[in-house]
């Protein structure tokens, strides 16, 4: 290319970059994004930064309130629970299951779901249509119920919970991908690429995939918050993470008995769950808004 720069603009942002610019300009989503980022970091570093092991019981510090209250102790920043276990350590380690695990689950579910969805959506000879239709029927069952049914078959336990939630999320990804691919496939620019003699793999990865990224990213955020809720709910019911392993949902369930005596043991995991899910929803929502804004201008 010639070296002369004819226009004064120094870069040609791609449409995806423009979405990012629009996203970046707003405060709340950026705070949420930072929050999620630091949470992820905390969760990864949890074994290193926790002051105590999650299951060590301090007999002399049972049901100690958080450190900022009158009876608190700086040794236990967030206090301890009814067995004398440090709340901060439990929250951080619990975050690995409540926040880290859903991320893994969503990555698994999306890989499988997007792959199958793309195949079904790009299928012009309707060989795979039956598969798509069958999986659509699965969508009529709420994903949590589906996970419960799967657990009823597989039995309780963390591993089974992961399998159950992953499986119950896959139909949604297939549905979203299939519809997006199918819609794009009808458009002129895909036809134009087809007339260029492009191979199907090229069409899928270079032509269609960049154009459906927005809807996929949105589905990812939705799936992530659903996965967090599901794993917390399953653990709350005692079907997911088994005690004494800390998890926000199971911590909530445990705290039910002594909610009047030590409210913090319920409030703290509750707030963590609330903040995480809200941050994810805010990010997802602003992403949708940023995409719409770019489409409008």
């Amino acid at each position: 290319m010639a070296d002369i720069e004819l226009y004064y603009q120094e870069r040609n942002p791609s449409p995806l970059q423009l979405v990012w610019f629009a996203f970046k300009r707003r405060l709340a989503p950026m705070i949420s994004l930072w929050l999620l980022g630091s949470l992820l970091l905390l969760v990864i570093l949890a074994p290193v930064i926790t002051p105590y092991s999650a299951n060590v019981q301090f007999v002399d510090a049972i049901s100690l309130p958080p450190s900022w209250t009158h009876d608190g102790n700086m040794q236990f920043l967030f206090g301890t629970d009814d067995l004398g276990r440090d709340m901060l350590s439990r929250l951080l380690i619990g975050g690995r299951f409540s926040f880290g695990l859903p991320i893994v689950i969503v990555i698994l579910a999306s890989t499988v779901g997007i792959f199958i969805g793309a195949m079904v959506g790009a299928d012009t000879q309707s060989k795979l249509r039956i598969l798509g239709r069958t999986l659509d029927r699965l969508l009529t069952i709420p994903s949590f119920l589906l996970a419960l049914v799967l657990i009823a078959i597989l039995g309780a336990g963390l591993g089974n919970a992961i399998i159950a939630i992953t499986l119950s999320l896959i139909p949604q990804f297939i549905y979203v991908t299939r519809n997006a691919v199918y819609q794009e496939w009808q458009k002129d620019y895909v036809t134009a690429s087809r007339l260029n003699g492009c191979s199907n793999t090229y069409l899928m990865y270079r032509v269609i995939l960049p154009n459906i990224t927005p809807s996929l990213v949105m589905q990812l955020t939705v799936a992530l918050s659903v996965a967090i809720m599901d794993i917390a709910a399953l653990s709350f019911l005692g079907l997911g993470v088994q005690s004494p392993t800390p998890e926000w949902g199971s911590m909530l369930a445990r705290s039910l008995d002594e909610v009047y005596l030590s409210p913090w043991s319920m409030v703290l995991p509750g707030i963590s769950l609330f903040v995480t899910i809200m941050a994810i929803n805010v990010v997802g929502d602003s992403l949708r808004r940023a995409i719409k804004q770019r489409m409008d201008t």
Binding site: Y189, P210, N211
Partner: peptide, 14 residues
């Protein structure tokens, strides 16, 4: 082939 709507027949992401 040249299509009716150049907007739709060009890939916005490339």
């Amino acid at each position: 082939m040249v299509f009716q709507d150049s907007d739709k027949s060009l890939n916005q992401q490339l």
